[in-house]
Amino acid sequence: MVFNLSQTDPRPIYQQILDEIRRGIVVGLYKVGEPIPSVRQLAVDLKVNPNTVAQAYRELERLGVVEVRRGQGTFVSPQTSRDSERRTLITTLANKAVVEAKRNSIGLGELIEAIRSIQLSEESAE
């Protein structure tokens, strides 16, 4: 998985990092109970200010998605469920699509119809 950070995304950078970690849990890059990269490592890899990464990690901790074990690092919390993270991701994606549709004066019905027709054409291609 490649972290997707964009300057033209209206979300603050720390929020983008937070969302990408959650996406990492959904796609199986970070497993429940296992560690996520250290603040320093992720900051260097992404070329992001370490304080911004730390802010994302603090927020993830507050949300209960990760937990900090002193001297050991940051782990995906055992209470985190990949399914519920997945549902969060789906809602986020749907939200994005709805916002984009609204911005372009496209009705909800038209959007859903378009998504269905994409799915149908993908199925027939397989």
Partner: peptide, 11 residues
Amino acid sequence: AIRTLVEHIAL
């Protein structure tokens, strides 16, 4: 150089 600077700020 940029990566080194980030690491420096972290450390």
